[in-house]
Design a protein around this nucleic acid. Structure first.
Length: 763
DNA sequence: CCTTAGGGTTGG
C-alpha cells in the first residue's frame, strides 16, 4: 500500500479514508490481535527529534493522545516511526495535529511503566505498509500583516490599546481592541456582544489575546476586525512568566502546548516591543491635571442626576490633596454605612458621566474595579482661596475611558486586597483630626498646580542656596573623581530611604558626632515612673528662685507630685513664659503641663538638691519638642544654675542656653536620608543631613505633628512621585560633596547633599 | 431593530 502523508487537509471529513478501515479505540488495542482493518486516531501531544538508529535507519517518535479522554495519561500512546516515513513525518507533524494511522504493528511497550502511557506502542513504517494521515490543527492563526478583506480568521495579538466593554448606542456592549504582533502591524477590532462577559477580558495594555472567527474588513484604507457569529476569545496576562490561565467566557476551548508556546513567544516579544505602563497609580500619588487608571474597591455609589453617577472608592492610600465631596445626602448613598464612615478619609468621590452611568449603576458594592482614564481636575472656583481636586470620568470612551470589573482572582486584586487588609484605619482617623483650617491653609499657598507640573518638567524642584556660579557635573564624572570635592548636579531622585519618613528623624550630637534613635514615649514614661518612687524632698521646696506646690493624687497610688515654678524678678510670670520643674508626675501629666507652660523640666529629689533624670529621658520639654542630652558628652551641673537665666532681664528659656547652664550637650533632631540620584550618566547615593533647611520643616517638630508629616510626605511625593517612570520624574538641582570614609579594612567615598533646599512653590 | 464603532482625553 502506498504511503499517504497528507499535509494540508483542513477538516477531518476531507480525509480519503478507505471505507474498510474502522476506528479502533486505544482501550481495545492489544498485542496479538488483528488490527489490519483498524485505524487509530489521536492528537500529537509530544514529538521527539528525528534520530538515526545504529543501522542508519531514520527514527521518529511521537506521543498520540486519544480523543475521548484528553486528561488521562493512560490514554496516550507512543508511536515509533521508522525509515523514510520517519523523515517525512518529522518534517510535517506538529503538536496539536490530528494524527491517523493504519497498518501498524502493536508491540508491548517496554517503557509503559516509566512513562505511564499505553501498555503497547505502535510501530509504523513504509515496509510494514502503514498509512499515516496528518491533519493540520483546526485553527490556523493569521499574522496581522497577512489579513485579507472579507475573510474570517483566527489570530493572536498583544493588546496595544483597549476600551473596556461599554454600553454602545445600539443594542450591544462594545469593546474596541487594538492588537499588534511581531509582524509589527496594528489591527483595531470593534467587538460587539449583548453580553459584556462574552467580550475579551482585557485588564491592561500588554495582555495577550487569541481571537477565533473574527471577521476582517477594510475600513478607511485599513484592515479592521469585527465580531462575526461564533467569535470567541481567550485573554492572557502578558507578563513573562505569569501563570498561563486563559480568561474566557467560553466553556469549551482548545488550549494545548502549541498555544502555550505561542503565548510565551508573544510575551517575550511584547516585553521588548510594547511600552507597558508602569505600576498603576495609587491615590497617594495622583497628580492634578492628569489622567490615570485606578485599581480600587467600590465602597459606595449614588445617583447624582440624570447624566452623572457617584462612585466612592478607596485603594488604601491617602490622596495627598484635599479631594472634593460630591454633595449627595448620606441616605442616598448605597453602601455599608459603617464602612463608609470608617473609610471616609480614604475614599474619594469619582463622578462618572453619560454612557458610563448605566454600567456604574450595575456595579456591586465591594467589587474591585479598574477605572480607566480618570481625570484629576483642579477646582478653579473663584473667590475660593484653597484648591481641591476632583475626579471625573467624563462621557465618551476616548483613550479607553471606562470602568472594568476585576475578578477576585486577578493578581492585582489579590495584591490590593492584601494591602487593604493591612491598612491601619486608626492612622487615617488621626489625620482627620487635623483641622480643616490647617489643611486649607496649606493649600492656599499652592494655588497653581499646573505651574507646578510645568516646572517639574523643566525647572528643578530644589534650589541652591549658594554657589550658583558652579557648573553642573555629571554623576559619572563625580564617581570617577577622588574625594573630597564639591559639585553642583542636576539629577532625578529615583528612590530614597527610609520610605517611612518618620524613621528618617534621628538625634545628633555635634560634639561626638554620634547619631541615635529618638527614644519613644514608653521609655520616658518608664523613667518617670521609676523616679516617682522617691518622694519629693520637702526641704528643697520654696527656695530663693522658685516656688513649690505639692499635692497627693486621689487615686489608689497616692503619688506625691511637686511642681517648682521658677520666678523671675521675684515674681511668677504668665504661665506661657514660665519654666517649671516637676517631680513625681506621669507622662500624661508632664505633657499636659507642657501645653500650658513655656518649659517643663522633669526632676527628682536627692538629699540636698534637685537633679535631672536619666538622660534617656528628655531633660527639657518645650512646646511639642522633647529635648535630649548626649549621655556621652554631658556633665550635668547643679539645677541651681537655672537661676542665672531666670535672673536675666527677659529670660528667653532657649533650649541651647538651658542645656549649657545645666551642663548638657544638646542633641539635635536631624533628618537623615539616603537619596538615590540618577542623571543618565550614572547613579549615586547621597546622604541628606538636614536640621530644617532642606525641607523647611524643623526635624525637631515633625514627630509630634501629623500636619508636618503630611507636608513632608507631600514634598517627597513631589520630588519622587510614586509610580512614575524615570523620564517623568522631576529634576533636582543639588550641591553634593564627596568625602572619604575609612575603616580598618575598607575605604569608600560617600556623598552628602548640602546648601540645597526644596523650591518654595513645592513645599 | 441587524446597528452599535470605526482608538487619540477634559462639560458637568
Amino acid at each position: 500500500m502506498p504511503v499517504q502523508l497528507l499535509k494540508t487537509v483542513k477538516e477531518q471529513s476531507e480525509i480519503p479514508l478507505p471505507s474498510h478501515l474502522q476506528n479502533e479505540d486505544l482501550k481495545h488495542l492489544q498485542e496479538g490481535c488483528d488490527h489490519t482493518n483498524k485505524y487509530i486516531q489521536g492528537i500529537v501531544v509530544l514529538s521527539y527529534p528525528l534520530t538515526k538508529l545504529r543501522d542508519g535507519t531514520d527514527f521518529f517518535k511521537i506521543v498520540l493522545q486519544g480523543l475521548d479522554d484528553l486528561c488521562s495519561r493512560m490514554n496516550s500512546i507512543n508511536i515509533l516511526i521508522y525509515g523514510k516515513m520517519a523523515e517525512d513525518c518529522a518534517k510535517i507533524i506538529r503538536h496539536g495535529d490530528t494524527f491517523i494511522v493504519a497498518g501498524f504493528k502493536v508491540i508491548k511497550s517496554p517503557t509503559a511503566r516509566e512513562d505511564g502511557r499505553h501498555g503497547c506502542h505502535l510501530e509504523v513504517s513504509e515496509e510494514a505498509g502503514s498509512d499515516i494521515y496528518s491533519i493540520a490543527p483546526k485553527y490556523v492563526y493569521t499574522p496581522l500583516n497577512q489579513l485579507k478583506d472579507g475573510t474570517i480568521v483566527n489570530l493572536y495579538g498583544v493588546v496595544k490599546f483597549f476600551k473596556p466593554p461599554y454600553v454602545s448606542k445600539g443594542t450591544d456592549y462594545c469593546s474596541v481592541v487594538t492588537l499588534v504582533d511581531p509582524s509589527n502591524v496594528k489591527l483595531t477590532c470593534t467587538l460587539f456582544n449583548g453580553n459584556p462577559d462574552s467580550l475579551p477580558k482585557i485588564y491592561k495594555v500588554g495582555d495577550i489575546v487569541r481571537f477565533h472567527r473574527i471577521k476582517i474588513r477594510e475600513f478607511n484604507g485599513q484592515m479592521q476586525g469585527i465580531t462575526s457569529g461564533g467569535f470567541a476569545s481567550l485573554t492572557f496576562d502578558g507578563t513573562v512568566g505569569a501563570p498561563l490561565v486563559p480568561r474566557t467566557s467560553s466553556k469549551m476551548y482548545t488550549f494545548m502546548d502549541e498555544e502555550h508556546k505561542r503565548i510565551e513567544e508573544l510575551r517575550v516579544w511584547a516585553a521588548s516591543n510594547i511600552s507597558i505602563s508602569g505600576p498603576a497609580a495609587k491615590l497617594s500619588s495622583v497628580q492634578p491635571m492628569l489622567f490615570f487608571d485606578l485599581t480600587c474597591q467600590l465602597v459606595g455609589k449614588a445617583q447624582v442626576d440624570g447624566s452623572s453617577f457617584l462612585l466612592k472608592v478607596w485603594d488604601g492610600t491617602k490622596c495627598p490633596y484635599p479631594t472634593w465631596r460630591v454633595p449627595v445626602e448620606a441616605k442616598d448613598v448605597e453602601g455599608e454605612k459603617a464602612l463608609l464612615h470608617q473609610l471616609r478619609n480614604l475614599t474619594v468621590d469619582i463622578l462618572v458621566y453619560d454612557n458610563h452611568v448605566q454600567l456604574a449603576k450595575s456595579l456591586k458594592i465591594g467589587s474591585f474595579l479598574r477605572i480607566y482614564s480618570i481625570h484629576t481636575k483642579q477646582a478653579s472656583a473663584d473667590n475660593e482661596d484653597f484648591s481641591h481636586i476632583e475626579f471625573h470620568l467624563h462621557g465618551g470612551t476616548c483613550y479607553g475611558r471606562g470602568i472594568g470589573v476585576l475578578p477576585e482572582n486577578n493578581p492585582d486584586v489579590k495584591e490590593l486586597k492584601a494591602f487593604l487588609g493591612s491598612v491601619d484605619l486608626a492612622d487615617s482617623q488621626n489625620m482627620e483630626s487635623m483641622s480643616s483650617v490647617e489643611l486649607d491653609g496649606t493649600f492656599s499657598d499652592f494655588t497653581d498646580f499646573e505651574s507646578y507640573l510645568q516646572r517639574c518638567q523643566q525647572l528643578s524642584v530644589t534650589v541652591l542656596t549658594d554657589h550658583q556660579h558652579l557648573n553642573n557635573t555629571e554623576l559619572k564624572t563625580i564617581m570617577n573623581s577622588t574625594a573630597p570635592q564639591q559639585y553642583r548636579i542636576r539629577a532625578k531622585l529615583r528612590t530614597y530611604k527610609p520610605q517611612k519618613l518618620h524613621q528618617s528623624v534621628k538625634l545628633h550630637c555635634s560634639k561626638c558626632n554620634s547619631l541615635q534613635e529618638v527614644p519613644d514615649g514608653d521609655e520616658f514614661d518608664f523613667i518617670l515612673q521609676r523616679s516617682a518612687v522617691t518622694a519629693p524632698n520637702p526641704e528643697l521646696h520654696n527656695t530663693s528662685w522658685y516656688d513649690s506646690v505639692m499635692w497627693t493624687t486621689q487615686d489608689q497610688k497616692q503619688r506625691e507630685i511637686a511642681i517648682h515654678f521658677v520666678r523671675h524678678d521675684e515674681l511668677l510670670q504668665q504661665p506661657e513664659n514660665t519654666l517649671l520643674m516637676i517631680e513625681g508626675g506621669t507622662l500624661k501629666e508632664v505633657l499636659k503641663l507642657t501645653k500650658r507652660f513655656k518649659c517643663v523640666i522633669p526632676v527628682r529629689s536627692t538629699e540636698d538638691d534637685l537633679e535631672l533624670l536619666d538622660l534617656s529621658a528628655p531633660f527639657l520639654l518645650q512646646g511639642n519638642v522633647k529635648y535630649y542630652g548626649c549621655k556621652q558628652c554631658s556633665a550635668p551641673k547643679p539645677i541651681k544654675n537655672l537661676s542665672s537665666i531666670a535672673a536675666e532681664q527677659q529670660p528667653s528659656w532657649e533650649p541651647t542656653e538651658i542645656a549649657q547652664v545645666l551642663g548638657i550637650e544638646l542633641l539635635q533632631y536631624v533628618f537623615i536620608m539616603k537619596f538615590t540620584l540618577v542623571d543618565g550618566t550614572g547613579a549615586l547615593n547621597a546622604y541628606l543631613f538636614d536640621y530644617e533647611k532642606f525641607f523647611q520643616i524643623p526635624a525637631s517638630e515633625i514627630l509630634t505633628s501629623n500636619f508636618l508629616q503630611e507636608k513632608m510626605q507631600m514634598t517627597m511625593n513631589m520630588l519622587c512621585p510614586p509610580g512614575r517612570k524615570l523620564g517623568d520624574l522631576p529634576w533636582l538641582e543639588c550641591f553634593i560633596k564627596s568625602y572619604n570614609v575609612r575603616d580598618a579594612t575598607k575605604h569608600r567615598v560617600c556623598y552628602q547633599i548640602f546648601d540645597t533646599t526644596v523650591a518654595e512653590d513645592v513645599v
